[in-house]
Amino acid sequence: MRHILSVLIENEAGALSRVTGLFSARGYNIDSLTVQTTEDATLSRMTIVTHGSDDVIEQITKQLNKLIEVVKVIDLNEAEHIERELMLIKVRATGKDRDEMKRMAEIFRGRIIDVTEKSYTIELTGAGDKLDAFIKAIDPAVILETVRTGASGIGRGERILRV
């Protein structure tokens, strides 16, 4: 099953490679990984999307916790949570496609952030499946380039992950 893990980790050189090294050494999957420092500059927050059986996910969280620099790990799937991903997508937009593309972007609440005579670059945020849906909804032939950040996640309501 797909799981989304939130990790608070010391903002130290090499900490990220410990996490990725752990996943590859133990044969765990990383579907996506995002990381950035938090409001407290000594800490980074990671969101790791992975998949595996319950046993594997249990081992992943235990092994992550075992890394000396990891402060806390939570499995967001254990309660309600929100996840968002950012996609920048460059599409060919000429002639009548230009209006069509603009309309599609609006439907998906995307924003056109760069325009040339022949193309649009659209910024879209949402859960991963929404971004997938956008890609499906437009003609594959017009897609020039996509870049996605991978999911960032946070617990709903009062659920908080901090030191």
Binding site: Q59, K62, N65, K66
Partner: peptide
């Protein structure tokens, strides 16, 4: 002492 040894 190591939780990851348990249920591995």
């Amino acid at each position: 002492v190591d939780p990851s040894s348990i249920a591995k």
